[in-house]
Amino acid sequence: MQVSPNDIVFIVIISSCCLFIAAAALITYVRLYNERKKKHFEEKELMAAEFDRQLMQSQLETQEETLNVVSRELHDNIGQLLNSTKLLIGVTERSLAAVPETLITAGQTLGQAIQELRALSKSLDKDWLSQFNFVENLEAEISRIHSAQTLHIEFSRPETLPLAPGQQIILFRIVQEIVQNVIKHAQAKKAVIRIVKYPGHLTLHISDDGIGFVGDDAPKGLGLRNIKHRTALLGGSVQWHTRPGGGTVVEISLPVNQTNE
């Protein structure tokens, strides 16, 4: 059978069109399947992030509970022992005709220790923290540090903080951790804590005039990790700016719920 040239042209055009459509269909299928894979991948990422958040939350809750137990132990056990000791010193003082100077100093030092212990116990107590706001708690913490005369802290802040009580506790723990780092590692004389409220977010700057650090000398361990974790839990970010001898600035930015503002 003889096939005419026109038939061949027709066959070639039709089959080329079909093959072209087949190629386009396969590429479209690859594209659509890949989109589905993307969705699945995003869901997996979201689940992993949620799992991390829950894990972090439970770690922090456990930590809060532990601090709470420590706080009660300090108050109920060690506090009582110190109170009894102070009472015994008082009894001894009254029974002596001439009270030695060292005993008076010991009594005063013990009184200071009891006050310090009460303040520390309060700052670790979760119920106490939830009753008061962040600003009041931090001011109490600062006056406790001032009484130890190791570091002077300047604190500036807005009237109110647009954060829920739970978030305020986490932020308070972050500040406590940073201030402890300044006291332990920075050899600083002065630190400044500044909180600024912006529409939609809040920034917290903590700077000191200490020795600073370079990349490799950065304090490693649980402290910095806790700061990062806690900031992440609040949905914020944390950055360290430092140079040797030039002090350190910790900058925390937190998103703020408009309803809390």
């Binding site: 061949i8 066959i11 070639v12 080329s16 093959l19 072209f20 087949a22 190629a23």
Partner: peptide, 16 residues
């Protein structure tokens, strides 16, 4: 893939 699948018919009927 596009080039070689789309050109199959032309290869088969090349001489014609």
């Amino acid at each position: 893939f596009f080039f070689y699948l789309g050109g199959t018919a032309c290869n088969v009927f090349f001489k014609y």
